[in-house]
Amino acid sequence: MFNPVSPQGKVISDLFILILVIGGLVFALVVGLTFYAVWSGRRRARNAESGEPEQVSGNLKWEIAWTVGPAVLLAALFVPTLLAMNASDPNKEQNGEPDIIVVGHQWWWEYRYPKANVVTANEMHMPAGKQVLVKLESADVQHDFWVPQLGRKMDMYPDHPNYLYLQSDVPSTYLGGCAEYCGVEHAWMLLRVIVQPQNEFDAWLSHQAQPPVIGGPVAQVAASPVAVTAQTGVGTQEAAAGDPKRGAQVYLNNTCVNCHAISGTTSQAKVGPNLTYLGGRSVLGSGVVENNSANLARWILNAKSIKPGVLMPAYQLNPQDLRDLVAYLEAQK
């Protein structure tokens, strides 16, 4: 159950299966007794001569039995409960510095790596085989961090920080989502946890810590031109390449900077997701669409057409500006 990949998740999964088995046995007993009572009662009603059945109104011994029986069973279940609680949610050093701070926003995730001074959004990276202390906060309403394969879920509050140990022994990408209803786009507040071997993770983290350098990779962008199609409402020009350097100016001259941040620039607002190295992420809008140039262009022009409740306003950009802006954002990988 849950396909756990962490010791914490495994403990819960095992406990669940134990409960399932015991519950299944109890259910089988109830069904068995019911069907026997029904079957024999039907037969008796058909066969027996007229008159009422014996008027039995109780039996103390039996009633004590089915009071004590479940009580013993539940008392016995209490022991694995206690053990599993400590194993799946170990005591945390409450004031220890967390490895990752996860902040829930309506409707996206902010990830801070305080030790490396890195901020990113919507895709969480963590090293494999290592217990990571995560601090959970919220910037607005109640959210809930839930990646089923990694273990328990934990609520996130603006006024009540929570801590969680996360661990995965198998490098892979794990999906989850916000599990506490948080408003219009609760459904598209998906979690994406990328578990990497330690060295890959270290490389990723140190890369993220460096401000992106724009300029060099123009050719690279030209090689993967922005396909702006009629669908985006920009025009029907074929695969025109954007200029990321000019895009940086478009970004800084527009109101993008009022909400977003890109490290190494003057844009340092914290209302919307941090866009540093956006090009390296695989999804946009916290999981609603794949991250590619066409979707990004659509998103900038009218994010609400992709994710109806999103707080980002629509932008009126001319096709050239849009192409350059998309090139700039996608160039940061």
């Binding site: 007794l33 026997y36 009572a37 009662g41 039996n59 479940p70 539940l74």
Partner: peptide, 26 residues
């Protein structure tokens, strides 16, 4: 919360044993 399962279980068994040995009309 686990305790509350006990009185609930009592009821279930009492209902089954109300049918038990009766002449059932469906």
């Amino acid at each position: 919360s686990e305790l509350i399962a006990i009185p609930t279980g009592i009821k279930i068994f009492n209902w089954i044993f109300t049918m038990w040995g009766g002449k059932l009309r469906f």
